[in-house]
Amino acid sequence: MRSSIYSIFIILTIFIFTGCGSKKYFEPAQTSSAEGAITTHKGTSKYLTRDGVTFTNNKYVSKYGSGKIVLNSNEVFLSANKSYIFTTDQYGKLFITKKSTKKLVKTVKFDVPIVSAGVKNGLLVYLLQDNTFGIYKLSTDTKIVENKSEDAFAVDSRIASPMFIDNLVVVPTLDGKLLIMDMNNPENAKVIYISSSTKLNNVIYLSRVGNLLVASTPNRVMTIGTAEGEYNRQGISEVAISKNSIYLFTKAGEIIKMNSSLEQQAYKKFKFAHFSTGTAFGGKVYGLDQQGSLIVADANLKRYRIYDIGKVEDFAFVSGHKLFKDELIIALDKLSL
């Protein structure tokens, strides 16, 4: 189905912060001001991915910081790596721009809109809106392999990007699987099932820490490698890793600290909170409730302070140590306990 990448079919655009169906909200008894940590930016969001936000002024922010180029009006940001910026349009064109020169180096046309991509050694790994995945050789404009996974009619907008590990590529799909392919022999892919939920089951988080792979759908998180574990939880809003700890943030107001085997180490629930996003670094954990309470906790979730930064009206996105919320930029490392 060739609908726009902005349509509900592609991405049932789940801004995690939108209405939760309950009239009860998290109302902390005491909050602090984050005024000294706040600056502003211009731009309303028009497209949100796991790796960035595209604004109506054709600028974008990625997980690495403010965008390096200004996009064309028909483009939206998908992701970036150390060398390239990946953008796309609603008709299935992928634009690859070299970071160092800010010049467009390749355009690849697909029949279906593209939702995630990555490049290594001249090979493009891609995932399309209809859950088709493949490897494309850029120098010869040929598809080395292409297959289609099961249909996924409603997905979370935070679609994880492919990950390269030596000669392997890990492709997160829209139906809750990880496909592991050898780039030199991609026909025989290994399949790892993260979750088998019938809706909102795409892989929303994929990260590597040493030899440990961490992957999550909105309903289940899994670790693979030096330690292995599985953890089922409905309504996972975000996953964050700090040092050797994994943190889950849920739509039920929970922050859960786990080890690499996904054994629970600490737990804190904020009644009626609904986390839009979260992160962890520098011995602190940061969780943003959709009503505007920004919770800063210590690594063991024993102490915390709550800052009021206003209800999330448009979007919330963590870029490095900064939180972009609507028109605000909050320097998280300036917030104390």
Rank of each mutant, 00 (worst) to 15 (best):
Y307S: 01
T279S: 14
L288Y: 02
F315I: 04
G310S: 09
N259T: 12
A297R: 00
E263D: 13
T279M: 09
L301E: 04
K257H: 04
K271A: 05
T277I: 14
A280V: 14
F272N: 15
Q291I: 01
I255L: 06
D308M: 08
F275D: 11
G292E: 07
Y267V: 02
K271S: 08
G278Q: 03
D289V: 11
V296Y: 02
V285K: 01
I306H: 04
S261M: 12
S261Q: 14
F270P: 12
N259P: 08
V312G: 08
Q290P: 00
F317G: 07
I255K: 03
G292H: 06
A280C: 13
R303P: 00
H274E: 14
V285Q: 01
D314I: 06
I295C: 04
S319W: 11
D308V: 07
I256N: 08
A280Y: 12
I306T: 12
G278M: 03
Q264N: 10
Y286V: 00
L288T: 10
F270I: 14
A299M: 13
K269V: 13
K268C: 06
L301T: 07
I309V: 15
Q264M: 15
V285W: 04
Y286M: 01
D308Q: 13
S260V: 00
L294A: 03
F281N: 08
N259S: 12
I256H: 08
N259C: 12
Q264K: 15
I295Q: 04
Y286C: 00
G292R: 03
Q290G: 00
F281L: 11
Q291F: 01
L294I: 02
Y304W: 12
Q265T: 09
F272T: 08
D289G: 10
K257R: 15
K284T: 14
F275I: 11
E263W: 00
I306V: 14
I295K: 04
L301V: 09
F272R: 14
S276V: 07
I306D: 07
G310R: 09
R303H: 13
L301H: 06
L262C: 11
T279P: 08
F275E: 09
E263H: 05
A316P: 02
V296P: 01
K257Y: 02
S319E: 10
G282K: 10
V312C: 07
E313N: 15
I306E: 06
G287C: 01
L294H: 07
L262D: 12
I295A: 05
F317W: 05
Q291A: 05
G283T: 05
Q290H: 09
Q264F: 00
T279Q: 09
K284V: 09
A299L: 14
Y267G: 01
H274R: 14
I295M: 06
F275P: 12
I309R: 05
Y286N: 00
K302N: 14
V296K: 02
D298V: 06
L301Y: 03
A280N: 12
I306P: 06
Y286W: 08
K269Q: 15
K311D: 15
F275Y: 10
R305I: 13
G282P: 10
G278L: 04
S260T: 08
A280P: 10
Q265P: 00
Q290A: 05
